[in-house]
């Protein structure tokens, strides 16, 4: 950095001069980052390798060798043993319903707060923020008890209801601040044309806010898919369990051998991996939005 800078050089093309300064450093930095990124994904690779090994191959060669052949029996056995298709369906049903219902509830709340500017708005908003931060441990026992009282215990509906409300706390908070910046003239114009508040919401506000609502749908879906404590407590029968709960409970019982553990892990990783590939852009956009609002 102390090398004398030729004035002409720096003045003419500062960009190029700067990159030349960096030239010695950027490849070591790149190499270090690649090593770090490889370490982050290494567990996934090791799991994928071992999920397709036969038990004999695993016990002979250990976890670090390449598989001798693609052996899918472990995956098939595990799939049948836990009825994995059913778990996938349950997870998809619960997460999909929660995403749609929670987005709907967030839109209604945020319309009243962000555009309707209801009285006591800061307090209402603070309530939603705090509700969002509440640990589920402080709700889990009464929710468990009450759902038994009303006959909703061990139903997927109970989990859908609870997570619709929990997720919409975040949605309300985020969407209210987005709608708070909604151009007033657009709303006024629609109102002058005779639209009711209900019509303004569906014909003006929702179509314009579609990108934010899309982010909420993706986040609600993935968050609900990954939830553990409440589904663990609420869904005890095999037929109602989600992927997370089924895998977590099996792991807790320590009944699986190494190849089956890897098969279980791979089957658990794959849906998350797909969501990640499909929604990557929405995810990164959403995280940035959520953090700044």
């Amino acid at each position: 950095m102390n090398a004398p800078r030729g004035p002409g050089n720096a003045l003419r093309r500062p960009g190029n001069a700067l990159s030349r300064h960096h030239a010695p450093a950027r490849y070591p930095v790149l190499a270090a980052l690649i090593v770090a990124a490889a370490l982050m994904v290494l567990p996934f690779l090791v799991v994928a390798l071992n999920a397709v090994k036969s038990p004999a191959d695993y016990s002979a060669n250990g976890p670090l060798s390449l598989p001798e052949g693609i052996h899918l029996d472990g995956l098939r056995d595990f799939w049948q043993r836990v009825d994995f298709g059913r778990k996938l369906f349950n997870s998809a049903l619960i997460s999909g319903s929660v995403a749609v219902l929670a987005a709907l509830l967030s839109v209604l709340n945020a319309y009243a707060i962000g555009i309707g500017r209801v009285r006591g708005r800061p307090w209402v908003l603070a309530f939603f923020v705090l509700a969002n931060m509440l640990p589920q441990e402080a709700l889990v026992y009464p929710v468990y008890y009450l759902s038994k009282q009303v006959g909703l215990y061990d139903t997927r509906l109970s989990v859908i209801i609870v997570f619709t409300v929990i997720q919409s706390a975040f949605g309300t908070y985020l969407l209210s601040s987005v709608l708070g910046a909604f151009p007033k003239e657009v709303i006024e114009a629609a109102r002058i044309d005779g639209a009711t508040k209900w019509q303004v919401l569906w014909r003006v506000v929702v179509p314009v806010s579609r990108p934010t609502i899309g982010v909420l749908l993706v986040f609600f879906f993935i968050w609900t898919w990954n939830e553990f404590l409440l589904p663990l407590v609420m869904l005890i029968s095999n037929d109602n369990q989600t992927v997370s709960v089924a895998l977590g409970v099996l792991q807790g019982q320590r009944l699986m051998d190494a190849t089956m553990t890897n098969a279980a892990a791979l089957l658990g990783v794959l849906p998350a991996f797909c969501f990640f590939l499909i929604f990557q852009r929405t995810l990164t956009r959403g995280i940035a939005m959520g953090a700044v609002k």
């Binding site: 994904v41 996934f44 895998l247 279980a264 892990a265 990783v269 998350a272 969501f275 995810l283």
Partner: peptide, 14 residues
């Protein structure tokens, strides 16, 4: 970012 989208139960198994 990948580990962030993984269900924690699955990360635990891994």
């Amino acid at each position: 970012y990948l580990p962030q989208v993984l269900p924690i139960a699955v990360a635990g198994i891994v």
